[in-house]
């Protein structure tokens, strides 16, 4: 498979001179057509920043990001508009990601009409189809985001993302805010859409358990650096890097007997190995916040 998305030695930093801080240093990976690649890490790992850099929401300070051989870094709005048909996003917070003052119909038709210059009737027809495909009634078109639950809104966000038939969707913790049963349904929907359209997912998450069940490959990040990469199952079942091992060991398993065994093993293995100073995650989490503020 040839690479759909190529991220090559991506760097993100902010500030100048002495106050320069690197947030992402030399991260490289690829996403193929129809593939789900998970970016996983704790707060401050830079996983969200990488997603935002690819989407052009945070400026990169170095490296190369290409979609189908087309450069994605430093685009202007007009160029971004041309790429937008191939690159879409689903965010974590289903409450913030839909404009509360527009109807679902207006939200969904906007990209079709503005970017693809389709007519009103045609856009509406496409929207009706989309809503059906994500399991929402067509009447949803005339209602406002506030009238839907978190899971329903996330379906609408998915409909907006797939409406322009993109090649790649950046999914930034798309299910972290949802209940587990809703999460399962949303993941199933994403998988179905991928089968049908061969869309690639860059799936940003903190939850290794979801990675293991949903992703093809996984990239583990820590403090803006890539620590481990490989097939999702292999990495989760036999992590190589000590940090990945600690992440896997810390994730509780919904099985008390198994979990007790894992816990006892963990206690033996990491008695004193891993007790990072608490100040590190705080400052690097702040980095993410600052980066977001800078980019606005």
């Amino acid at each position: 498979m040839s690479a759909l998305l190529t991220v090559d030695r991506l760097q993100v930093g902010y500030g100048r001179g002495r106050r320069h801080r690197t947030v992402i240093s030399d991260v490289s990976f690829e996403v193929a057509e129809g593939e789900t690649v998970a970016l996983v890490g704790e707060s401050g790992s830079g996983k969200t920043t990488i997603g935002r850099a690819i989407l052009g929401l945070t400026p990169a300070s170095g490296g190369r990001v290409e979609l189908d051989g087309r450069n994605l870094l430093g685009l202007r709005a007009a160029e971004r508009r041309r790429i937008a048909a191939d690159l879409q996003v689903i965010f974590q917070d289903p409450y913030g990601s839909l404009n509360p003052s527009l109807t679902i119909g207006e939200i969904l038709t906007e990209p079709l009409r503005i970017q693809q210059r389709r007519g009103r009737a045609e856009s509406q027809r496409i929207v009706d189809e989309l809503l059906e495909r994500v399991g929402m009634p067509a009447s949803a078109s005339y209602r406002y985001p506030a009238q839907f639950s978190g899971g329903q809104r996330q379906r609408i966000a998915i409909a907006r993302a797939v409406s322009v038939a993109p090649r790649l969707i950046v999914c930034d913790e798309p299910t972290s805010a949802l209940d587990v049963s809703t999460q399962a349904k949303v993941l199933r929907l994403l998988a179905e859409l991928q089968q049908r359209t061969k869309v690639g997912y860059l799936f940003i998450t903190h939850d290794l358990a979801v990675v293991r069940e949903f992703a093809d490959r996984v990239i583990v990040l820590r403090h803006g650096e890539l620590v481990e990469e490989g097939p999702a199952r292999a990495v989760c079942d036999a992590p190589q890097h000590p940090y990945t091992r600690s992440l896997v060991a810390a994730a509780p398993v919904p099985d008390p007997v198994l979990q007790r065994a894992r816990r006892e093993e963990l206690a033996r293995a990491t008695a004193e190995e891993f007790d990072a100073p608490a100040s590190v995650p705080v400052s690097s989490r702040d980095l993410d916040v600052v980066i977001e503020e800078q980019s606005l």
Binding site: R52, L55, G56, L57, A77, A78, R80, R81, R82, I83, A84, L87, Q88, V89, F91, Q92, D93, G96, S97, L98, N99, I107, E110, P111, I114, Q115, A157, R160, E292, L296
Partner: peptide, 15 residues
């Protein structure tokens, strides 16, 4: 403008 839907609009290439 920190709301994610504004980011979504930017990603869509809206001016």
């Amino acid at each position: 403008s920190k709301d994610l839907y504004v980011d979504a609009a930017r990603v869509s290439g809206l001016g």
